[in-house]
Nucleic acid binder design. Structure first.
Length: 96
DNA sequence: TGATTGACTGGTC
DNA sequence: CGACCAGCCAATC
């Protein structure tokens, strides 16, 4: 499944690559952006490769909700929306 | 049809 | 680590 495991984060690039759309991270964000709320998609676990929540002037509300959601998932989020990527980064098929 | 925009990314300073 | 620039593709108006 292309969904993201709970307690883990994924970047737009990862999602794009996962769906076979390498380099189309923008379209991923665009797609999530037009998702209705609530949505069956864990958009809340999708952040940019900078390890930060992607803010947008038109999303000043939901973006903070996303921060709260991640915190609820057990992921510490900074006041600026910074996330400990590398620690919670989703690892597709990372079976030990 | 064409120009513009965008929840991005990577590399460099 | 933060800021800046350049590249990239698709959807929208």
């Amino acid at each position: 499944m292309t969904q993201i495991p709970p307690g883990q984060l994924a970047t737009y690039g990862q999602i794009a690559d996962r769906i076979g759309a390498y380099g189309r991270a923008r379209q991923v964000g665009w797609a999530l952006g037009r998702l209705p709320l609530p949505s069956p998609v864990p958009w809340q676990r999708v952040v940019n490769a900078r390890g930060r929540i992607s803010f947008s002037g038109s999303r000043e509300g939901s973006d903070w909700i996303q921060r709260e959601m991640l915190i609820a998932e057990g992921i510490p989020v900074d006041s600026e929306g910074r996330l400990p990527l590398g620690r919670y980064l989703w690892r597709p098929d990372a079976s030990p």
